[in-house]
Design a protein around this nucleic acid. Structure first.
Lengths: 138, 138
DNA sequence: CTTGAAGCTCTAGTGGCTAGAGCAACTACA
DNA sequence: TGTAGTTGCTCTAGCCACTAGAGCTTCAAG
């Protein structure tokens, strides 16, 4: 049996966040001791570890709910779980591409100021005027 | 003079978002016509364009507030604006690095399912067990 | 038996919007 | 001038995934 603090330490999920996961039904309500404090079992610990890891991988809580719903069933779990993971990968790749475009743009803007220029700030001008941009970020 | 709808069309910022920017003091309150509808001038249009572009580049509304505060002043505007832009670039680069790590991890997990395997879903197992991960994402 | 850490519930706030209700005003056409 | 349809207005509430704080109770160590 684990206290909520022990769960937090073991998984790296903050205490209020654990209570939040319980509140939204992502974590099963654990038992309570005589003093109304939560006491988690190993299944609770495993579930929280799963959630933490999936969160770190960028899955939404809804995705995680779906993934956890699959667990323990037979049949096409794997196809479905795989689908969710692949779609998340797609998502991550898109975000990377977009951020790389932004980084290029920001680099360009930053370079405008390298030597310092009297009075008129080119960074602000660049931000004000999209037409100066190389690519079509955003 | 532009209506809020014209502003929206011209910049790509949605109408409620424009009102929101005004509410939080990011956009100056525009004048109103006899029927209490907003009528923006060119300065308002330029400001909204600036905000949109900076948002597309990933700046927070707080950053944008700071950048707009600099505009029109003399002296070290440029240094300060440059600093904000560079710090945003740093931020974007970090996010890219983190996402790339996640993509690698997700790829690894997805490959586990390539051939299909009977009954036990390796994707779910991989998600449950961080120790299988190659790098230290998250 | 006391003290301090850890637990509890509850409310409210974060960022950056988005959605909807229920109206008022404007615009185009007949 | 009438009317229909679009656009505008304010206000409240909701989204995601937490985070912070108040004010209290319970637990564990010495």
């Amino acid at each position: 049996m684990y206290t909520i603090g022990a769960m937090s330490k073991a998984t790296g999920v903050k205490v209020p966040t654990i209570r939040y996961y319980e509140e939204i039904g992502l974590l099963d309500e654990p038992g309570r001791n005589a003093g109304n404090q939560r006491r988690f079992d190993q299944a609770g610990m495993d579930a929280l570890g799963f959630i933490k890891h999936a969160r770190d991988l960028g899955f939404s809580l809804d995705d995680i709910r779906a993934l956890m719903g699959l667990d323990g069933q037979l049949g096409d779990d794997c196809a479905e779980a795989d689908q969710i993971a692949r779609s998340q990968l797609e998502n991550v790749r898109e975000r990377i591409a977009k951020l790389e475009q932004l980084a290029r743009e920001l680099e360009r803007i930053s370079h405008l100021c390298d030597g310092g220029n009297g009075g008129c700030c080119k960074v602000l001008t660049a931000l004000a005027d999209h037409s100066q941009c190389a690519g079509d970020h955003g």
